[in-house]
Amino acid sequence: VQCADVDNIHEVIAAITGEVLANLVHEITPVLGVVTSGVKLVKAGKAVAEDGYHLYKSDDYKAGFRLGDPSAAAEAIQLIIKRDLAKHSVQLGQQTLATGAKIGGLFADFGTATTAGIGIANSLASLGLQLYGLGLDIKDMRAGNKRLAAPSTLNLTVFNECPILGCYLLTCADTSAVANMFIADIGLPGWMDKVELMKKKQMDPMLKIATKNISSSRLQLEGLGSDKGTHTKKGFFAGIKSKAMKQVGLS
């Protein structure tokens, strides 16, 4: 509850127990624990590099969307990128320390007790980080559901309260509705080439990030209709998140 900064998270904890248990088993097993931490280290390093690149390019990506709601939605995705970069940076430091300590433990006791101790500590750290992320998601979901329940209040400020709604806006809208193009340019020589280049270099990278965040989201937002931007993939969390969130009174 303290990690996630919410009042009631018992059902959410129950929902992630299987994942946490599997991670713990891998973390504390001698030799396998070293490999597990090494793989996590590589993934965290790759994630930090990707997040850093996308954050660096995000202003350019945003320029592909017209001012107003589309630009505000793009800024919300920038916020999500910053959150991911912060999370993955913590994971990188965490896995660097854990991997080095486990390798050192191989020379001390062949990784038996050492790997178990470090693995438990590393699993607890991962759980704390995961719960903190869930807490942010829950707060976003509450704010988003509140605004969606009152359509008359919806404006571009909703993206500050629930950033993932920016992902939905950009992925669900037609390109012509959000692209940074002027009606006066239509018909001028080479105008279609300019639009296609802008879509490829600026819009598509941002839309790819938005789609990825929608697909991996644990939020249960009410009031969104089905369309091309609403994911239907049924993963582990997709099957339980609605029930879990309703149990803790979040939907």
Score class of each variant (00 low, 15 high):
Lys40Arg: 15
Leu41Phe: 15
Val34Ile: 13
Asp51Tyr: 06
Gly52Cys: 09
Gly52Ser: 09
Ala44Glu: 04
Lys40Ser: 15
Glu50Lys: 14
Lys46Tyr: 13
Val48Gln: 01
Lys46Phe: 14
Leu55His: 04
Val48Trp: 02
Leu32Glu: 04
Ala47Pro: 02
Gly52Thr: 04
His54Trp: 08
Asn23Tyr: 11
Tyr56Leu: 03
Ser58Phe: 05
Gly38Leu: 08
Val34Asp: 00
Ala44Tyr: 08
Leu41Asn: 14
Val39Pro: 07
Leu32Gln: 06
Lys40Trp: 15
Ser58Gly: 07
Leu41Ser: 13
Glu27Lys: 02
Leu41Val: 13
Lys43His: 11
Gly38Trp: 05
Leu32Cys: 05
Leu21Val: 14
Ser37Asp: 08
Pro30Arg: 14
Glu19Gly: 12
Gly45Ala: 05
Val35Thr: 06
Val39Asp: 09
Ala22Gly: 15
Lys40Ala: 15
Gly52Leu: 10
Ala22Lys: 12
Ala44Lys: 07
Leu41Glu: 13
Glu27Gln: 10
Val42Ile: 15
Lys46Cys: 08
Val31Leu: 11
Ser58Asn: 11
Ile28Gln: 01
Asp60Asn: 11
Thr29Tyr: 11
Ala49His: 13
Val20Met: 09
Val48Asp: 00
Glu50Ala: 13
Thr17Ile: 09
Ala22Val: 13
Val35Asn: 04
Tyr56Glu: 03
Lys43Ala: 12
Leu24Thr: 00
Ala47Trp: 06
Val34Gln: 05
Leu24Gln: 00
Lys43Tyr: 10
Gly18Ile: 06
Tyr61Asp: 03
Leu55Gly: 04
Val25Tyr: 09
Ile28Ala: 01
Gly45Gln: 06
Tyr61Arg: 00
Ala22Trp: 13
Lys40Cys: 15
Leu21Cys: 11
Thr17Cys: 06
Asp59Pro: 02
Ser58Arg: 03
Lys62Arg: 10
Ala49Glu: 09
Ala44Gln: 06
Ile28Leu: 02
Ser58Tyr: 04
Val42Lys: 15
Val20Arg: 10
Asn23Met: 12
Ser58Thr: 07
Leu32Asp: 04
Gly18Val: 08
Gly45Arg: 03
Asp60Met: 12
Val35Ile: 12
Val34Arg: 03
Val25Gly: 02
Gly18Cys: 07
Tyr61Ile: 01
Thr36Gln: 10
Thr29Gln: 11
Gly38Ala: 07
Thr36Asp: 09
Glu19Trp: 14
Gly52Trp: 02
Gly45Glu: 06
Ala47Asn: 05
Leu21Asn: 11
Gly45Asn: 03
Val31Ile: 12
Thr17Trp: 04
Pro30Gln: 14
